[in-house]
Design a protein around this nucleic acid. Structure first.
Length: 563
RNA sequence: UGUCCCGUGGUGUAAUGGUAACACUACUGGUUUUGGUCCAGUCAUUUAAGGUUCGAAUCCUUACGGGACAACCA
């Protein structure tokens, strides 16, 4: 498992760390948990929670459990369980125990009976509509259920019959008897158990009654001996209920878990709710949960993000209780920083313009050498074939170049990276006036690394290139933000978030790459020099490599152009 | 006219009664055989008004602003 602590140096403590350190005085061990519901794939927001829960346990010498909150069989599937486990491990964490709330169904049932016996729970026969109507509103108190004051014996008998399948779905439920006038809606006789004739991914058809979140989560924490139960802000109003149940379950003086809440992660130009992500998948606006445009962990992984960069990101966004929207530029910065120091360089032309070196011998190929990774002082070199006919990037040539354009233009010189300095002598056009090729001459004395006076000549630009005869033709998938606006949820009445989908979020193109790319394996990451970071997609075949663009290099020239 | 939570540069996070700091973004400039990387610099009277104090981003009061809560979801 990765060790996060090395990154911590002398940073000040965030508020959850402060809480833990105060508790450490009386408590010896920190036990946390990451509690996903297996009803969807994990996203970058979950990554923050994972890094927090596992990281805190690690920092304070404790442990972190992976616990699936699987109390709603109608929405949960094994596929999601498997993907969640894969994602957590890929991120670099290993749980102490793999657990399921459904493991505790028997115990939870017994506790429910205990609440009935104490006169703190009752079976209620109101319909969903009646429950809703009688609950009141945040400003208006609710009304008590007519079934509220049944005898303990009758409740016991009824609850047993619920468990035995003697009622239909929706016919009745078990409710906690708290306070219908509480200003906290969650204390207005919340539902503890409901009837569901659904197959559960673990317990099969053993049960037809299932506990609600509020009667399962805190109890599960308690059973496992969790010391700190960290969750997102929307559960803050559940805290009194979390504590209310535990108060009657724990023995006097027995330690109970402490729930504390932090702000969830939001990223601009995307959505972060599982429901909306599921909708994107089901309605096929994207190609599955692991579509590289998705903010899911599996999507980011396929896109080429490293686990390291996501952990760094989670660390940099911080932890607090303020609503926040993180600029996706920070995520991109984190992955660039990692990939810059680790990825092999390669030259790839994505929009080719043919050039012919008129003074270079025909039918000749020579080998030039490039450094695989200039950030690594011990980097090896790679061999690159050079010849008379080359491709350069179309954007690297302008016929009428403004002063600020440093690249190739008629009568101007540039260096071909790792090779020679060339000059553009002639622009060849077709009958439509489109530029189809350039005739250039090269300076034989200017070869890279030769140390000659000519080679040390200063030129304004260095271009990447590829020898046409030796290039490997590949598919590249270029991604842009999935949504055109920073907050797709901020819609006016007649639109929904789908209307802000970016129609150009995926573009497919061809890249011609130097032949050293031939041995690339699925998942390998490269920097296409001067373009960006790419990784080999799983759709690659022996005939054709497919690359995903992870993120572009910072592009100062694009900014200058846009002014 | 409810309860709870939160207000610090464009964005996030620090400063825990004693000089508002760091990161990202943006913009300047330098280095560079990647217009990348790297390096240097610029960008805030801490929502407002009162109060306590020698001293307030920090404590108190009020106002204003934002968010959560009315699923047999989690």
């Amino acid at each position: 498992m990765v060790n996060l602590n090395s990154q911590d140096d002398k940073k000040s403590l965030h508020f959850l760390e402060q809480i833990i350190e105060q508790d450490l005085v009386s408590n010896s061990k920190v036990l946390t948990r990451f509690p996903p519901e297996p009803n969807g794939y994990l996203h970058i927001g979950h990554a923050k929670s994972i890094c927090l829960n596992f990281g805190l346990a690690q920092k304070y010498g404790g442990e972190c459990n992976l616990r699936f909150d699987d109390t709603n069989p109608t929405k949960e599937e094994v596929e999601y369980v498997d993907s969640i486990k894969e994602d957590v491990q890929w991120l670099g964490f290993q749980w102490a125990r793999e657990l399921y709330a459904s493991d505790y169904f028997e115990q939870l049932y017994e506790w429910a009976v205990l609440f009935i016996k104490k006169g703190l729970a009752y079976v209620c026969h109101m319909t969903a509509q009646e429950v809703s109507d009688s609950r009141g509103t945040p400003t208006v108190p609710g009304k008590e259920s007519p079934y509220r004051n049944r005898s303990v014996d009758e409740n016991l008998m009824l609850f047993t019959r619920m468990k035995n399948g003697e009622f239909q779905e929706g016919e009745c439920m078990l409710r906690a008897k708290i306070d219908m006038a509480s200003p906290n809606m969650h204390m207005r006789d919340p539902i503890m158990y409901r009837i569901r004739y659904a197959h559960h991914h673990r317990t099969g058809n053993d049960w037809c009654i299932y506990p609600m979140y509020d009667f399962a989560h805190g109890q599960s924490d308690f059973i496992e001996g969790i010391t700190h139960s960290f969750c997102t802000l929307e559960f803050e109003v559940h805290r009194p209920l979390y504590e209310w149940f535990l108060e009657y379950i724990a023995e006097p003086g027995q330690a109970v878990p402490k729930q504390r809440e932090f702000a969830r992660l939001n990223l601009n130009y995307t959505v972060m709710s599982k429901r909306k992500l599921l909708q994107l998948v089901e309605e096929k606006h994207v190609n599955g949960w692991d579509d590289p445009r998705m903010p899911t962990i599996s999507g980011l992984r396929r896109r080429g993000y490293t686990a390291e960069s996501i952990r760094t990101f989670a660390n940099k966004v911080g932890v607090s209780k303020r609503e926040n929207v993180i600029d996706v530029a920070l995520l991109e910065h984190c992955v660039r920083e990692d990939l810059n120091s680790t990825s092999a360089r390669v030259m790839a032309v994505t929009d080719p313009l043919k050039i012919i070196l008129t003074n270079y011998p025909e039918n000749t190929t020579e080998t030039v050498y490039g450094i695989i990774n200039p950030e690594n002082p011990n980097s090896e070199k790679r061999a690159i074939p050079f010849s008379r006919e080359l491709y350069i990037e179309r954007a690297d040539f302008m016929e009428d170049a403004p002063k600020k354009f440093f690249r190739l233009a008629p009568g101007r010189e540039v260096r071909l990276k790792n090779a020679y300095i060339i000059m553009c002598n002639e622009v060849i056009k077709n009958e439509n006036g489109e530029i189809i090729e350039l005739h250039c001459s090269y300076d034989p004395l200017s070869k890279s690394g030769s140390g000659t006076e000519e080679a040390q000549r200063k030129v304004k630009a260095t271009l990447h290139w590829v020898s046409i005869a030796d290039a490997v033709q590949t598919e590249i998938r270029l991604y842009d933000r999935l949504f055109t606006v920073e907050n797709p949820l901020n819609t006016n009445e007649q639109e929904d978030f789908l209307s802000y989908l970016n129609p150009e979020s995926l573009q497919i193109a061809t890249a011609y790459i130097e032949p050293s790319i031939q041995n690339a394996q699925i998942g390998d990451r490269f920097q296409f020099e001067r373009i960006g970071y790419f990784c080999v997609d799983k759709d690659s075949t022996t005939e054709k490599l497919v690359f995903n663009k992870t993120v572009g290099l910072r592009d100062t020239w694009a900014k200058v152009q846009n002014k």
